[in-house]
Write a protein that binds this DNA or RNA. Structure first.
Length: 217
DNA sequence: AAGCGGATCGTCT
DNA sequence: GACGATCCGCTTG
C-alpha cells in the first residue's frame, strides 16, 4: 500500500530551493508553509526526495520543550544562528532527528521534520533503513517518524549538522514544486513532557504518511 | 489496535 | 548520574 500519491516533481523542480527569507520568520508560519515542500538529498549522482507531511515548531526561551529553552550550548548553537541551517540531534541512544533553524541570527527557533512521503530514491531509502521494501510494501516504514526520516536520508549529526539547506551546493536542501496541501491541521506535539499541550504540530490532513495514531479529519 | 518496556549514548546537572 | 523532540518487538485484548 501507500504508493506515492502526490504529484511527482521534475528534476528542475527538485532544484527550486527555498530561499533564506522563507526561514527568517517565526517557526509557526514556517512550519505551516513547509508542509507540501520537498526534502532533497544528493547521494552521489542520485537524488532522494520526499514530500514533507508533518512537522513541529519549537520556539525559544519561552518554550520549555525546546532544546533552546535553557540557553545556548555547544549542542544547540545552530538554533541560535541564522535561518535555514540544519540542526541535528541524537536522541535515546539510537536516533537522529532533523530540524531547520528559523528567525534571524541571535534569535533561537526551529522546526522538527517528523514525517514525509517518499517520492524518489525509494530503493536507496530502504537500503539506508535496512528494510526489504519489496516484501513489506509499506512505505510508511521508510519515512514516517523523525528517526526513520533521518535514517532514510542518511542524516547524521557528524555529516549534516550546521549544513546550509538553502542551496543545491549542499547535498541536502528543501525544494518547492508548487504543490500546496488541501488542508493543514495542528495538534499537540509528540513525545514531550513539558509544554505538551501547545498546538505546535502541523500535519497534512488525511495524509497516510503522517506518524503516530490517526487524526480525525 | 493499543500499551508496555528495552535498547543505547550524548548532553547537561 | 539522570534523562530524552524515538523505534521496535512483544503482549494483551
Amino acid at each position: 500500500m501507500n504508493k506515492p500519491r502526490s504529484p511527482s516533481p521534475t528534476r528542475d523542480q527538485l532544484r527550486n530551493v527555498l530561499q533564506r527569507e522563507f526561514f527568517d520568520r517565526d517557526p509557526r508560519p514556517v512550519s505551516h508553509d513547509l508542509l507540501g515542500k520537498i526534502l532533497v538529498r544528493r547521494e552521489g549522482r542520485k537524488l532522494l526526495a520526499a514530500r514533507v507531511v508533518e512537522v513541529e515548531a519549537y520556539l525559544g526561551a519561552d518554550d520549555p520543550a525546546a532544546h533552546a529553552a535553557a540557553g545556548r550550548t555547544a549542542r544547540n548553537a545552530v538554533l541560535f544562528g541564522p535561518p535555514g541551517y540544519a540542526y541535528i540531534y541524537f536522541i535515546y541512544g539510537n536516533h537522529y532527528c532533523l530540524n531547520v533553524s528559523t528567525l534571524p541570527d541571535g534569535t533561537a527557533g526551529g522546526v522538527l521534520f517528523r514525517a514525509a512521503e517518499p517520492l524518489a530514491g525509494i530503493e536507496d531509502m530502504a537500503l539506508l533503513r535496512d528494510i526489504d521494501v519489496a516484501s513489506t510494501r509499506d512505505l510508511r516504514l521508510l519515512t514516517s517518524g523523525p528517526g526513520r526520516l533521518a535514517e532514510a536520508f542518511g542524516i547524521t549529526r557528524e555529516r549534516d549538522n550546521g549544513k546550509d539547506l538553502t542551496t543545491t551546493r549542499s547535498d541536502l536542501w528543501l525544494a518547492d514544486d508548487g504543490y500546496r496541501p488541501e488542508r493543514v491541521i495542528t495538534t499537540k506535539r509528540v513525545g514531550i513532557t513539558k509544554a505538551a499541550e501547545l498546538p505546535l504540530r502541523y500535519l497534512i490532513a488525511g495524509n497516510p504518511f503522517v506518524s503516530g495514531p490517526r487524526v480525525k479529519t
